[in-house]
């Protein structure tokens, strides 16, 4: 699980163009939005498309994303849960 979360973190950094960030600077439980990494609503939409493209998981309601995208770990957990079903 942790290995997967670390891989996911790197994917997110690339996908959101966070070039200046080293993966080590982002903790798996660090908040991604608001005060944390400072991501915003546009990043949330980017992440929705990323999940669908990369993992085939669809999030219909952007509001739902708020909880899912709290941290790298919550996204990893969400993917694990939805991959099998």
């Amino acid at each position: 699980m942790e290995a997967f979360a670390i891989k996911l973190k790197e994917q997110i950094i690339t996908h959101l163009n966070l070039e200046d960030l080293e993966p080590d600077e982002v903790g798996l439980d660090d908040p991604l939005f608001g005060e944390g990494l400072g991501l915003d609503s546009i990043d949330a939409l980017e992440l929705i498309v990323f999940l669908e493209k990369e993992y085939g998981i669809k999030i219909e309601n952007p509001e739902e994303g708020k909880q899912i995208f709290e941290s790298v770990n919550t996204i990893a957990k969400f993917i694990e849960e939805h991959k099998k079903s």
Binding site: L16, N17, L18, E19, D20, G38, I42
Partner: peptide, 12 residues
């Protein structure tokens, strides 16, 4: 650019 602009803001 990196000397003129904040790299964090350059991502978009």
């Amino acid at each position: 650019y990196k000397e003129i602009l904040n790299p964090r803001l350059m991502r978009r």
